[in-house]
Amino acid sequence: MADIPKRNIPGGNVPEGQHPSGKNEEAGKATLSRRRVLQTLAAAGGATLVGASAEVFADNKIKGWPDRKGMLTDLTECVGCRTCEKACNRANGLPEPEVPFDEKSVFEKKRRPTASAYTVVNRYENPKSSDKPLYRKVQCNHCNEPGCASACPVRAYTKTPEGAVLYNKDVCFGCRYCMVACPFYVPAYDYESALDPRIVKCTMCHGRVKNGGIPACAEACPVGAVTFGKRSDLIRAARERIRKNPDRYVDHIFGEYEVGGTSWLYLSGVPFDRLDFPANLVEKPLVEQTKGFLSAVPLVLTIWPALLGMCYASTRNKEGKE
C-alpha cells in the first residue's frame, strides 16, 4: 500500500497511437503484471481512504481540449446501406459477419455493438412516411466525461485529447462495471475468449485520426450522414442545418449536453426517443454523480477481496497461456 504509483493523467495508460484492439493487438500486448493491477487498486483504494477527491478519473481535464474532435451523424441522410459497418469492420480487422453486410434481414432485430461489430445500424419506422424507413447508427459516443472511465477500478479507460475514449484491454480484468455505467449500453464483453477478459468498443479510429486521417465510417459513408471534425465546428454546422431546414430536423443536437456532452453528435428528423435514444438523460456528467457515490462508499475497498481473487485467476490464466 505504501508504494502508491504516480497518478498519471488520462492518456497515460495507453501508449501513443496504440489501438486497444484489432490489428495492433499483438504489438501493443503488454503482459498484464499482477503487480501493476495491485498497484492501481492500491492507488484507487488509497486515494479513497485518504478522502482526497480521487482524481483518478477523466473528468475536468476535458475543458483544456477545445480542439477535440467529434462526429456528427445526420440521421435524416442515412439510407441504411451499412457501408459504415463494413468499413469499421475492415479498419479494425474484425472478422467478416455471419450475415453479409448487404443483407437487410439484420434489420428485423435491434442490434447492439458487439466484440465483432463496433458499430451497427438499426432500422425504425418513419412516422412521416412509411416507405422511407429511418436508421440509427449505434456505437460508443465517446462521452466528454465518460462514466465507463469513472466506474473502472483499474483505469482501463482513458479520454484522449482527440476526443476518443480508449480502452486498454491489458489492464482489464473483466469486472464489467463499465457495462453497467455506460448510459448507452455500449461496451461489449468478448465472450469468445472467456479466459482473456476483454471489453471492446469503437475507438473513433484513434490511430487513423492521430495520423491525420478520419474515422473509417465517416470516410465510407456515401451520403455524408457521418462527418468528422472539430466538435465545436460540428455543433455550429448542426445548428446551421437546423436553422436552414426547420421542417427537416427536430430542434435538438443529441450529445451536445447529454451526460455532460458526447463527442458523437446526432441530428434527427423525429424525436430522438422514437429511435431508442435514452430519454431524459441528465446534463451533468455521470462522473460527478458516481464520484459522490464512490467517495461515500469506498467501493473498491469493499469488494477488494473479490477483485483480487478475480485478478489472480485471470492473471494465472494468462500466464498459463503464454
Binding site: 441522410e77 459513408c221 471534425g229
Partner: peptide, 28 residues
C-alpha cells in the same frame, strides 16, 4: 477528398451526388 472537417458545411463529392440522387431514389 475526405480530411477532417470535410462535408460539414458542404457535402463531399460522393455525398453531393448521392444526396442529389436520393431526393428521388430513396424508397421510390
Amino acid at each position: 477528398s475526405a480530411g477532417p472537417g470535410a462535408g460539414i458545411d458542404r457535402p463531399t463529392l460522393k455525398a453531393a451526388y448521392h444526396q442529389a440522387c436520393f431526393k428521388c431514389h430513396r424508397g421510390d
